[in-house]
Amino acid sequence: MARLAYARDRGCRSPVCHRPAQVCELDHVEEWEADGGETSYDNLAPFCARDHHIKDLPGWSYTMDKDTGKITITTPTDDQYTSKSEPLHEPRDNPLPDEPPF
């Protein structure tokens, strides 16, 4: 699960951070203990140490849209920021042919 989450996200999921996933900590978006969040691919996201600790401060909340993977962060002043989810690969300009050319 960890490798899939790191490959999916490629970096810290905070909308203002650009640290690569390899130096991030995996975290439950929906808190595991308090809210009954489960340890699953859909509930894990990498956050750098700084953003991971901010997430756990009073008044901050993070939610993940299960369909798009976007994370919305709400601050103690009710400002909201949404992270973008990026595809692993750019779409191909030309699809592969049905038959090999040989």
Rank of each mutant, 00 (worst) to 15 (best):
D51T: 03
Y62V: 12
T75W: 01
I54H: 02
R19H: 02
S14N: 13
R13K: 05
D56S: 14
L4H: 03
A5W: 00
P101S: 12
A45Q: 09
L57G: 07
V29H: 03
E90R: 11
F47E: 01
Q22Y: 05
G11P: 00
D35P: 01
S61I: 07
D9N: 13
L88S: 12
T77M: 11
S61P: 00
L4A: 15
P91D: 13
C12I: 02
G69T: 08
A2R: 10
H53M: 09
A34C: 05
T63A: 15
D98R: 13
R10M: 07
E86N: 10
D78W: 03
C48K: 02
E90N: 09
S14Q: 06
A21H: 01
P76Y: 07
H28T: 09
A21I: 02
A45P: 03
R92M: 14
T75S: 14
S61R: 13
L96S: 15
M1E: 13
V23E: 04
I73M: 10
T39R: 05
T77D: 13
W60V: 15
P97W: 08
H53Y: 05
D93N: 10
D79W: 03
C12W: 00
T77L: 09
R13G: 00
M1F: 04
G37E: 11
W60Y: 15
D51M: 05
Y62F: 14
N43V: 11
L57S: 10
L57D: 09
V29S: 05
M1D: 08
A45K: 03
D51R: 10
E30A: 15
V16D: 06
A34V: 11
L26A: 06
D78N: 13
V16N: 04
D78C: 07
I71C: 07
N43Q: 04
I71F: 05
T63H: 11
E90P: 04
I71D: 05
V29A: 07
D67I: 07
C12F: 01
L88T: 15
T68W: 04
E90L: 14
T68N: 06
D9A: 05
S85D: 06
G69L: 08
N43D: 09
R13W: 00
A49I: 08
T68G: 08
L57Q: 13
K55D: 04
K84Y: 07
P100W: 08
C12R: 00
D35S: 15
I54R: 09
R10I: 02
G59H: 10
P91N: 10
L4M: 08
V29W: 02
T72H: 02
S40P: 02
G36N: 12
T68F: 08
K70D: 01
D65W: 03
I54D: 05
C48H: 01
A21D: 00
E90H: 11
G11H: 11
D93Q: 09
I73K: 06
Y41A: 14
F102E: 13
A7L: 13
T39S: 12
S40M: 06
Q22S: 15
A21N: 01
E31G: 11
